[in-house]
Design a binder for these strands. Structure first.
Lengths: 184, 184, 184, 184
DNA sequence: GATGAATGAGAATTCATTCAT
DNA sequence: GATGAATGAATTCTCATTCAT
């Protein structure tokens, strides 16, 4: 099993899958994904052994992408609130500017095709954030806080999308809620 | 005249669908649902014109069920915090004692088969709660608060399920987070 | 097996079947026919044991109807040409003013659901016409002539429908062709 | 690259469809057609997007086949009667030696699945014949004559099949009728 | 007798995957 | 390695017919 030749092609498949899954869910057919990726039906299976593997790898890529975005330019030396604010803004920005990725991740998250192993690996991305949050003295465990952070940011993005006029207000309100909940 | 439609059978189908969708998502086949409901494949379609209609009606039933549970024994005269606490407890209880309903609703919520009309009708259930929450002076709009409440309770139930030993702690921490976020 | 109560209902079913079959062919569902006849699905089967029987009886009724129309006011004493002309006019008139019956009969005629027995009985209707035609000295057998008459009149009606402006011309040309073919 | 579509397989499907439709009409199931064509059920749909498309393409192929047969060895320089006779003989021969094609075409012709576009294209085949016939001074329009020719030949073939002993007589009588009708 | 819910055997079509080219 | 035709199980939905009401 030589490594597949073209990382470019692999990314094209993943990108096409993201779009397809965002719209129709994990039921998106491999044929449609192949067409969108401008790749033949068979080629998908030289890059991913099965559709389930494609799904799991996409899930991981998206989590990784989100994690990378979240911690980019992370101000490690800043105060707790500032760092939390920074993470919040990155999270919202990612969700808001990447609707397809955002929706695809939601679909994948509820799918039974994603293995527990993938879920764990995906959550690992939030470890650093957990550390950050554990500094805040709160009754809630770090892992739980991380999950809440994700859930809140997702709902916030939903509302920003639903009411674009009040996007900034929602973004601020969402963080305020989070911060007060965490530390208030 | 003739045999009347049996509400019992309709409920059996919805219950079977709930279980099936909870495990495999909206891709659950009508054939499997029929078998689980102890009904013939064709019968599904005398109760629901299409699978999509079944999905939408189930979504509505679940929302309704949740709403009813949430507001059962609602202490209208009590203080704000007590009323919020009451709602929170009902919400958690519903999710925790009805894992299938809980998961099915999650699957349906992300599915593109649920029409905007159904979503609106489903959200209407939360109107009363919105009223409750709007009393609390907070920067967040009532609708947004309702959504946050739902999201938080879902995550809380997730963690209660994941770590049964700390179920009560999670439940309390979840409410504390919500209350502080709302009013803190 | 008491005789079904209502001849009226029976006719309603046959009429509805005629329309349905005219449009979608013998695949027309009994449910649709029942609805159109303003009768319940089950009732169809108290008047006709099976769908095939309905089809066969309808075929016979239509043939009978056509035969009756064809020989109505038949000028038994007139000359051969006049009598032939009379039959032709009745035939064309029937087809032209009863498009649904006309089309339904075409559909039934090519269907394998019509039994040989029904076909024979249906052809019997043309016996009298055969007698008429056999007077004309021609190489063609009476039965063959009858069939040709039917085929020609059908095509003529088709063209009258397709080109309504020239309906009368087609009608005349059709008869001219028939008469010359027969006697020329 | 990859396996090319096999014209052989396409023809096998069309041939199987011809037989199936000849016997049970356009209701012939794709599954049965596939089996008869020794092809898997799915394969039908790589050659024809839908069953309706299969039906329309088959209709066109049959018309084309008939047209080709009709004009094969056409004696363009011969006298009118001889040319007409030639066409008649080819028509009868085609119908008589290809009962399945003959019946399938009849079924397709009355089906509402055949689009107007297909019908037009199918009729185009008779254009050359129309030209031939228009030479004969007759009251009937060329298109109408073509239709009559088709109808007469079909009935003739029917009778030849029904009474094989008199096949030749019927064939001759049919032409005599046609010729007299046209020119008499 | 009339009704229409119940049934389950098909129906057309889709799809992940394999494999000949 | 890339391609896309081939496959057949699985899917949603339809339908003639039966039978409880």
């Amino acid at each position: 099993m030589a490594r597949p030749l073209s990382e470019e092609k692999r990314q094209a498949i993943l990108a096409a899958a993201t779009d397809a899954i965002a719209t129709v869910g994990v039921a998106a057919s491999t044929a449609k994904i192949a067409t969108a990726a401008e790749v033949s039906e068979g080629t998908i299976f030289t890059y991913f052994a099965t559709k389930d593997e494609l799904l799991n790898q996409l899930y991981l890529e998206l989590k990784d992408d989100l994690g990378r975005a979240m911690l980019a330019t992370y101000p490690a030396k800043a105060g707790l609130r500032e760092r939390a604010h920074h993470v919040w803004d990155r999270l919202i920005e990612w969700g808001h500017t990447n609707p397809a990725k955002n929706r695809a991740m939601k679909q994948l998250s509820v799918s039974d095709k994603i293995t527990p192993a993938s879920r764990n690996a995906g959550n690992a991305v939030f470890e650093e954030v957990n550390n950050l949050l554990s500094e805040a003295r709160s009754g809630t465990s770090p892992a739980f806080c991380g999950a809440i952070l994700e859930a809140l940011s997702e709902k916030t993005v939903d509302f920003m999308r639903r009411e674009p006029d009040r996007a900034d207000a929602h973004k601020a309100a969402g963080f305020a809620f989070f911060w007060k909940g965490l530390t208030g």
